[in-house]
Each structure stands twice: as C-alpha cells, then as structure tokens.
C-alpha cells in the first residue's frame, strides 16, 4: 500500500450498502481454518476494501444495488444459506457486475500479510529485491536451429526468392 493510500480515510460511499458488501465478500472468500486464512470480511481486509475502491466506485455501487434488487431487500438480513444461493444466482446472471465485486475484493485480500504468508508469497513489493528465474537449457533450441530458416525470403521487386 502506498503512503498516499494509508493516509486516506476509509471511504464511506456505500453507507447504505456496507452490510451488503460485507456479506458478499464474506461469501466470496470465507475464512478457512484448514488453510489458516482470514476471510475477506476480516475487519482489516474489509477496511482496506472500503478505502481502495478507487475507480470502481460507480460500478461497485451499481453492483451492490443490483444485488439488493436481486435479494429483494436486505441481503444481509437473510439466512446465510439463502444469501449464498442468491449470490450464486446473481453471479451467473450478472457476470460483469460480479466481476467488479471480485476485483475490488481480490485486490485487497491478496495483499494482506497473513494471506500472502499462507500462499507462500513474500509480503514485500517486487522492487528492489526482485526475483530469481531459471535461465533455462538453451540446448532445447537445437531442433529449432537444425530446421533452418523459416522466414519468407523476398527478392528484388518483391518476388519470392
């Protein structure tokens, strides 16, 4: 997270729909004891989601309105299994809007230190340490070399030579 983002107050553009969004992200990526992972509704992750919506703000509002309409009112007040069924239907019917929900959730969930540690990724930016990548076995190219040129040679006047 950049210093700029850290200093930004958590946005509250979805005051009416915050419980809806909380319920959605909790269904999307639930906590897992098996893998030792928090859910996307973890307070720290959810706060990050709220303050990091950025350019998706209009589309996220549209998606939340659509979910609420789909749920016929307050999604968050429904029983959990009913929420899950409704969200599965919504995801099939409105893949583009579901994609917005997935993007704003994944962008924050998969940078949380606990999550990164659990999936085996160092909790650091790529720069300045970088990464190691195998050079590779250049002899794999021997058959390609042996085949000879494959480009179309062009002679004077544009005729094939």
């Amino acid at each position: 997270m950049t210093a700029l983002e850290k200093n930004q107050p958590a946005e509250e553009p979805f005051e009416d729909a915050r419980q809806t969004l909380l319920a959605i992200v909790g269904h999307m990526i639930p906590a897992s004891t098996e893998f030792g992972l928090p859910g996307a509704d973890d307070p720290a992750i959810y706060a990050d989601i709220l303050r990091s919506v950025g350019r998706d703000k209009p589309l996220l509002s549209k998606a939340l309105d659509a979910v609420e309409a789909w749920a016929g009112g307050r999604l968050a007040t429904l029983p959990r299994d009913q929420q899950a069924a409704l969200l599965a239907e919504f995801r099939s019917a409105e893949p583009e809007l579901a994609g917005v929900l997935e993007a704003v959730t994944a962008r924050c969930y998969y940078r949380d230190d606990r999550v990164m540690a659990a999936i085996g990724v160092e909790g650091r930016p790529p720069f300045p340490l970088g990464y190691e990548v195998e050079e590779g076995d250049w002899s794999l190219l021997d058959p390609v070399r042996a085949r000879g040129p494959i480009y179309r040679a062009v002679g004077e006047g544009g005729q094939r030579s």
Binding site: M1, T2, E5, C108, Y110, R124, P125, F127
Partner: peptide
C-alpha cells in the same frame, strides 16, 4: 512495483 499495492 515499489509498493505493496503493485497489482491494484
């Protein structure tokens, strides 16, 4: 790539 929000 200099920040933790590099993908976002």
């Amino acid at each position: 790539s200099s920040g933790r929000d590099w993908e976002a």
